[in-house]
Every structure is written in structure tokens, then in C-alpha cells.
């Protein structure tokens, strides 16, 4: 087919379209949704008994703040990257916050080591952690994929990965309010692993779901 004929076909019977939300607004909507869902989870399971003491001791606060910042920045970056004309370096936006989270947890491990000795670094299994973060993270990621489905034809994988990172980081904040994990090494291992798993699941299934979403909208 000639390209000029294609243009004729595309413009014949053109339908008006609703513009996508700007990234800041879209991120805000999605963060409100995530906060509501994770908040409901926290309300259902109840705050951990030692939350006030932990927050007052000053160790959990930077961890929570850096995880929340990672979630917020990753969401904003995902909505930016979903648009064709945005710089791909937006993908780096959540990295400083993620590095701060890792640094906080590393510092926590050292502090535990000095306080309690090598025993503090011993890992045991904590599947509820994994379940909470992946269980909340994956459905929230699907919400993000729906909102960024227009990225299916542009760069679906980084957008989906950032969506997964954002959802999992926010779920990790929720989990920290609910679940009792004393040792920083445990938090680092289980929260970290759950966030990585959610991000990988998102980047694996994300592009396909986005395409399906985009086709559903076009149909």
C-alpha cells in the first residue's frame, strides 16, 4: 500500500481522543490508589506492636522515608517514560532513593552487628514478607500498566519495571508498619528480594498486558 493511501485511511473518520494525564497528575492518582490499597492492608493486619518505639528510636524512619521516596519517584519516572518524547534518563530518577534505602539497611546491619554480634546477621525465612510485598505489589503494578498502556508501542519494559519497583517499594513501606522484623539484615534480605521479584514479574508480563490494554481501548 502507498503511504499516502495509508494517511487517507488513518484520517478518514478520525475520532477525537482524550489526552493522557500529565505525568505528575497521573503519578498522584496512582499513588493515592496505592496508598488506599496498602492502607487497607495495614488496617486489616494492624500496626505492629512496637511501631512507636521503632520510629522514635530513629532507625526505621530513614528506611521508611527512603522506601516511600523510591516508590514515589519510580511512579513519576514511569509516567514520564511512557510518553514518546521524554528523555530515557528519567529511568534513573528513583536510583538515589533506592541507593539511600540500601545504605540505610546496610548501616542498620552494621549497627545490629555491633550491638548483638554475628547472631544479628543470621537469616531465617520470612515468607509472609514476600507474600505481602508481592501480593500487594503485583496487583498495583497491573493498575500502573493500565494507566501507562500507551507505552506498549514505545518502551514497555522499562515503564513496566519502574511500575513494579514503585508498587513494591510502597508495599514494603506498608509491610514495615505491619510486620515485626527486628534485624536489619532480615529486612534487607526479604524486602529486597520481594522488591526485586515484583520488578522482574512486572517487566516480564508488563509489555504483554500493556499491549492487551491498548488493543482493548482501540476496540
Amino acid at each position: 500500500m502507498r503511504t499516502e493511501d495509508l494517511i487517507d485511511q488513518l484520517s478518514t473518520g478520525l475520532k477525537p481522543v482524550k489526552r493522557v494525564w500529565n505525568p505528575a497528575f497521573a503519578a498522584m492518582v496512582w499513588l493515592c490508589l496505592a496508598a488506599a490499597v496498602i492502607g487497607a492492608g495495614v488496617a486489616f493486619f494492624g500496626f505492629r506492636h512496637d511501631l512507636a518505639a521503632r520510629l522514635a528510636s530513629g532507625f526505621d524512619t530513614p528506611q521508611l522515608l527512603s522506601a516511600a521516596a523510591t516508590g514515589i519517584l519510580a511512579a513519576f519516572a514511569a509516567f514520564q517514560l511512557a510518553l514518546p518524547d521524554r528523555d530515557r534518563r528519567w529511568a534513573l530518577l528513583p536510583l538515589p532513593a533506592a541507593a539511600a534505602w540500601l545504605a540505610t539497611m546496610g548501616w542498620g546491619c552494621l549497627a545490629d552487628l555491633f550491638r548483638a554480634g554475628p547472631e544479628a546477621l543470621r537469616l531465617s525465612t520470612s515468607f509472609p514478607c514476600l507474600g505481602f510485598i508481592v501480593g500487594f505489589g503485583v496487583p498495583l503494578t497491573v493498575g500502573m500498566l493500565w494507566l501507562t498502556r500507551h507505552a506498549a508501542l514505545i518502551r514497555p519494559t522499562p515503564v513496566a519495571a519502574l511500575g513494579g519497583l514503585s508498587a513494591a517499594a510502597l508495599a514494603s513501606v506498608g509491610l514495615s508498619l505491619v510486620h515485626h522484623l527486628q534485624a536489619a539484615a532480615m529486612v534487607l534480605a526479604w524486602h529486597g528480594m520481594a522488591i526485586v521479584i515484583t520488578t522482574l514479574i512486572a517487566s516480564a508480563i508488563g509489555p504483554r498486558l500493556m499491549r492487551a490494554g491498548l488493543s482493548a481501548r482501540a476496540a
Partner: peptide, 29 residues
């Protein structure tokens, strides 16, 4: 490739923000 680009432009035409320049949007696609 030009025809592929036209089809993509058509399908994601709602992602263009008229307050921004058009050329980078088009060129990226």
C-alpha cells in the same frame, strides 16, 4: 518503517501534549 511510524502515531496520538514541541514526539516514534 514510515508506515509503521504512521500507525504508531495514530494509535498513541493521545500522548502528545500540545504545550510541548511536536517534532521530538514525532521523531522519537
Amino acid at each position: 518503517a514510515v508506515q509503521d511510524a504512521l500507525l504508531t502515531i495514530h494509535r498513541v496520538r493521545h500522548t502528545y501534549d500540545p504545550s510541548r514541541p511536536f517534532r521530538p514526539w514525532l521523531a522519537a516514534i
